[in-house]
């Protein structure tokens, strides 16, 4: 191809059309010859997808069954890295841990998922709340199943928390150095019960209404802070300014109580409980992993601290 258009040169003048033609011909030729080669290469590459860039960007290590990869499988995964890479060989025995802490956490996740879905169908107002539950039960596809799962998972979670605490006590797992984590656990137990209790009012039916009435009537008797409690009226407590009023946003269980219940149930307590859970799990690792099953200790081996 000449460098310039001929201006008085002897060379044959090459028209634009010819040049385009030649280019297209070349392109077609390259399609014919390169593409099949590339396609072949592509298919060869796909035979081992673990070598693709997409795969290696997600999974940072190989998956052959080597000790290193088993450890990396846990350590390089954000969801699994709360676990150590290796544990006491007896720690996986169900008879020791009963799996109750894990079950509690799993149920919390189930409750969060079903709870968020329920929130799509629920308005926390006196006019709507009960109708929303009826609508959910009779018209929403799988609505009844959704509500049932949320309810029963909540009850199951309470049971699992109790059994978890029971197991931790029986194995002496609160002893040094795990004292603080036991305390976090006690707080989580309280918040689990409060979560369940605040959810009780939300269907706005007789069951929830009277359960919450009975429950919050106790607050009226708080010493010093309730209008019927010891020393309450001395400190100026009336039904309109005491601790029960603060809980319900009124002197009776009504629209404000429903809204407060809803906000504590869906936002307030879950956030606090989640923070405590993070601390709880973190401390399990920092305090040396789960407590056992440890080697038994004999009374003769106890080192008495010097006084």
């Amino acid at each position: 191809m000449p460098e310039e258009n001929g201006n008085g040169n002897n060379g044959k003048r090459v028209g634009l059309l010819e040049r385009v033609k030649a280019g297209v011909k070349e392109d077609v030729q390259s399609l014919r010859s390169d593409m099949p080669a590339k396609a072949k290469e592509q298919i060869e590459g796909l035979k081992d997808p673990t070598k693709t860039q997409v795969y290696t960007s997600i999974f940072r290590h190989k998956h052959d069954d080597t000790p290193r990869n088993r450890a990396l499988g846990v350590l390089s995964n954000v969801f699994l890295h709360l676990h150590p890479a290796k544990i006491n060989r007896d720690a996986v025995r169900y008879s020791y841990t009963w799996g109750m802490g894990g079950i509690t956490f799993y149920l919390f996740i189930v409750l969060t998922l079903t709870g968020v879905m329920l929130m799509f169908y629920y308005h926390p107002s006196k006019v709507q709340a009960f109708r929303d539950v009826l609508y959910l039960e009779h018209d929403v596809p799988f609505g009844k199943l959704l509500r049932n799962m949320h309810r029963w998972a909540a009850h199951l979670m309470v049971i699992a928390v109790w059994l978890h605490m029971f197991r931790v006590f029986l194995t002496g797992s609160y002893k040094k150095p795990r004292e603080f984590n036991w305390n976090i656990g006690v707080l989580l137990l309280v918040f689990t019960l409060l979560l369940s209790f605040t959810g009780y009012l939300l269907p706005d039916d007789q069951l929830g209404f009277w359960a919450v009435t009975v429950g919050t009537n106790m607050a009226r008797a708080t010493p010093g802070l309730g209008n019927e409690g010891p020393f309450g009226h001395m400190l100026g407590m009336t039904p309109y300014n005491d601790v029960r009023f603060g809980l319900l946003g009124g002197s009776i269980v009504d629209a404000n109580a429903l809204l407060r219940s809803y906000i504590w149930h869906c936002i307030g307590i879950p956030i606090v409980a989640s923070v405590l859970m993070i601390v709880h799990f973190w401390r399990v690792r920092k305090d040396g992993g789960i407590s056992g099953p440890a080697a038994v200790m004999l009374a003769s081996e106890v080192k008495e601290p010097k006084k």
Partner: peptide
């Protein structure tokens, strides 16, 4: 419940 770990001074029976 919260004071349990601080008043139980028995070092035996931890983890089994």
């Amino acid at each position: 419940l919260m004071v349990i770990p601080y008043i139980d001074t028995n070092p035996l029976g931890s983890g089994y």
